[in-house]
Amino acid sequence: MITQKAGSVVFENVRKTFGSFTAIPDLSLAIEPGTLVTLLGPSGCGKTTTLRMLAGLEHPTEGKILIGGKDVTMLPANERDVSMVFQSYALFPHMSSLDNVAYGLESSGLSRKEARERAEEGLVLVGLAGMGKRLPAELSGGQQQRVAVARALVLEPQVLLLDEPLSNLDARLRRRVRTEIRELQQRLGFTAVYVTHDQDEALAVSDRIIVMKDGQIAQSGVPRELYETPASSFIADFMGEANVVPCEVVGVADGEAQIRIGGLLHRVPAGKAKPGAARLAVRPGAISLAEGKGQGLDGRILHSAYLGSHVEYEVETEVGTLFIVDHIVDRILPAASEASLGFRSRGIALINN
């Protein structure tokens, strides 16, 4: 019977350099057992280097890495009690699905009979019962991905590492497989560290998201926190598109800030806001649009595009050009027409920098 022993992960002041280049200047983080944590960020932010150090494929220049409370900083990959699902799946093309899943078990010393029994259990776990005889070329991309996950899980690691696991799948299949991975993680309760550059993917699967920039943590939190209360303009724009506009905090009381955007007054959660000049992150769907001037923040339509379920607008205002997603599709305001903008209660946040 395959069991999972969820382990914690701790990085203590980890630094990683490659020659004169510093990829990770000083990284400290902690991951609780049984959680799925995503390292998210643009290319070159350090997320893959962090994952490779956790896997033992790279070693820190300074600092300490612990898995399940054990110092593994300088241990080789095969002594770390982790398994990795690679971006390319790394399946042996000449071996059946069953043999691919059993390979690591046989290499670790299990008898062929026991390894194949465990491999069969692994295929059942990921919903591929009866497909053990198929070669990778006879499987869909999503099925190949599940074989790779099964191969990792049968080793019963403390931590499962997933490096851009859905990047080779089309959009519809990505949605389905990410749901399967999340449901499997929640059902079995293993610890997972998941690397991606895809914000939607991170929001869909994570207990917690760590957004990285220049080898450092830009912000860490649950998905809703990062999306609705970004700590900076970088986070606001990276975690889904946002309009970043100047505003004035008129006053703060009872946890709310009254702000002025152009000639419009609005209330938002105060956070650490103080009276004075500030900046506001506004999601495209948080702006309402009405025909004519004088009902809110005045604007002029620069461009409109019908996309079936919604209309996208670019609107020129006194605080800058705003991108708006409007789900009212039975009327479309044409370019050069006048409009009034209002702000909804959600999808708006004051940002610190």
Results as ranks from 00 to 15, higher is better:
A349Y: 02
V329I: 07
R208Y: 14
V268S: 00
S97Q: 13
V222D: 13
Y227D: 00
Y313W: 05
G41T: 07
E120L: 12
L265R: 15
V268F: 09
T48W: 04
Y227S: 02
R174Q: 03
A305Y: 09
T229G: 05
L110N: 04
A90M: 06
G262A: 02
E117W: 00
V82D: 00
V9Y: 15
R146K: 13
D237G: 15
Q4T: 15
G308S: 11
P136H: 07
V222M: 12
Q186N: 07
A6V: 11
T196A: 01
G68V: 11
R174K: 04
N100Q: 06
N78R: 14
A77N: 13
P230S: 09
F190P: 05
K47V: 11
L307Q: 11
R112V: 08
P284H: 04
R260Y: 09
G132A: 06
R80C: 06
P136N: 03
Q4G: 07
E79W: 10
V14T: 04
L307E: 06
A90V: 04
A115T: 02
A6I: 07
V329L: 00
Q219E: 09
I181P: 01
L36W: 10
V252E: 01
A171G: 03
G308K: 13
E164L: 09
L51R: 11
L153D: 00
G271T: 09
G320R: 02
L57F: 11
R267S: 15
E225N: 02
V124M: 14
G122P: 02
I259E: 00
D81G: 05
S167R: 12
L123Q: 14
A90F: 00
V315W: 00
L322R: 02
V72H: 05
I210R: 11
V325G: 00
P93V: 03
R176I: 14
E32K: 09
D26T: 01
H59W: 01
G56W: 03
Q186R: 15
